[in-house]
Amino acid sequence: MSHDHDHDNELDPFAARVRALETILTQKGLIDPAAIDVIVDTYETKIGPRNGARVVAKAWSDPAYADWLKRDATAAIASLSYTGRQGEHMQAVFNTEDTHNLVVCTLCSCYPWSVLGLPPVWYKAPPYRSRAVIDPRGVLEEFGLTLPADKKIRVWDSTAELRYLVVPMRPEGTEGWSEEQLAELVSRDAMIGTGLARQPA
């Protein structure tokens, strides 16, 4: 998306409207501009898919944690200090030999921010939101993921109250790996379900 700036100082209409909202909300004492900067910084630099990768790596390494994550993902994830801002509940869905899980939000773009950061552009785009439900196998193929025909695909539709985290299968050949090493194998896409965990090099 490119905008032509033929003037040195020009606010495009969207930027000007955001500033106008900021002005009104600050005057009304509803927001503090400094706090807005902190939120932006937090989401850009501190929260991201690495949080989710640590959750998955811990589940791979620690059967008791995996069991907890299965039963009460909200609490198990909060125990690592990754707490959702919107009070949303988390559910972890585990990939198995038989079933692959895929997460979408058909309504808008609900996403497990506390563990994955902000959603990628395609997650928010209409084609993914509509087609993930209708033709999940075709969507996965476009992501370069061809699953065996007998593997079931379960699609989980996120809501404002409930968000899903896919726990991919642990790759073979990673016995004895530390949680830090394992976390490196867990991509954002693997936790949405549009990918698998990376194979060890």
Partner: peptide
């Protein structure tokens, strides 16, 4: 994994205002 999610600063500000 760390691709930028905001194309322009106003997008980040609108996002953060909503959270606040």
């Amino acid at each position: 994994i760390d691709a930028p999610v905001f194309a322009e600063p106003w997008q980040a500000e609108a996002f953060a205002m909503t959270l606040a």
